[in-house]
């Protein structure tokens, strides 16, 4: 069951972004691991979508972590302490440490952003953006794109099935595959452009290009307290980063 929402999506997104900034600035594996275990893990577990987020995290970060381990673990010419010499590939301590530290940092980056995004209420985010006076064209593009993605994917599948019913088979060669992609993409784009043309006329008829302020029918869930909290958060993280960099960066 999805968790009960406490904060506005803008507050949640900002908090996630600032956490990523903090992890990048501090850049210690202990800190990254701490954020991962004490911040990201509980957030995933209490999100009400732990299984979905966990699966998405594994699918997104898993291949990247394995790639990183293989790349830096086997090919790290800067490494001096060699554990295993395999000819062109050498396993070095420095390479493994580099892969591990990057792996933890990358996991925090993906974990924080993916957890926030997957528990985000897009409609509420768009409503807040409208209430806060964000560019309405940006709000339209984001809202429309998020709504279109599943529609485009579904239409792509339908066209693929229709083409397969007419004998469309994807072979092994790259040119055959590209031809297959073209057979699906062309009708997909034509259909979407026809839709876009109709949407264009409808938007113009409803005064989309007018410059007057918009009224949102969705109530504003953002509060003055959260706005103050956001400002303080930015200020606090900015100060922490500045102090950390002054203290730790040599010269």
């Amino acid at each position: 069951m999805p968790r009960r929402r406490i904060y506005n999506p803008v507050t949640e997104l900002l908090t996630a972004a600032l956490l990523v900034v903090l992890v990048l600035v501090v850049n210690r594996w202990e800190f990254s691991l701490g954020v991962l275990v004490l911040g990201v893990l509980p957030a995933v577990l209490f999100s009400g979508r732990a299984r979905r987020i966990g699966l998405a995290l594994a699918l997104v970060t898993g291949p990247l972590l394995i790639s990183s381990l293989l790349l830096h673990g086997l090919f790290f010419p800067e490494g001096e302490r060699i554990l295993l010499d395999l000819g062109i590939a050498r396993v070095s301590v420095e390479g493994l440490v580099f892969a591990a530290v990057l792996g933890v940092r990358t996991s925090v980056f993906a974990g924080v952003l993916l957890t926030t995004a997957m528990t985000l209420d897009i409609a509420e985010l768009l409503a807040t953006m409208t209430h806060r006076g964000w560019n309405r064209k940006l709000v339209f593009v984001i809202g429309s794109a998020v709504g279109l993605i599943p529609h485009v994917a579904l239409r792509g599948q339908q066209i693929t099935r229709a083409q397969q019913a007419r004998g469309f088979v994807v072979g092994r060669g790259p040119f055959t595959r590209l031809r297959g992609l073209l057979a699906v993409t062309t009708p997909l784009v034509i259909g979407l452009l026809v839709d876009a043309s109709e949407r264009n006329h409808m938007l113009e008829a409803r005064g989309f290009s007018a410059t007057v302020a918009r009224t949102s029918y969705v109530p504003d869930s953002d509060t003055a307290g959260q706005r103050v909290f956001r400002r303080l958060l930015v200020l606090g993280v900015g100060l922490c980063c500045a102090v950390w960099l002054i203290v730790t960066v040599p010269g």
Binding site: K137, F140, V141, S144, A145, G147, V152, V189, L193, N200
Partner: peptide
């Protein structure tokens, strides 16, 4: 131009 941008993003 704006109505075709979400289409591009989704594509």
């Amino acid at each position: 131009s704006l109505v075709v941008m979400p289409l591009g993003i989704a594509l």
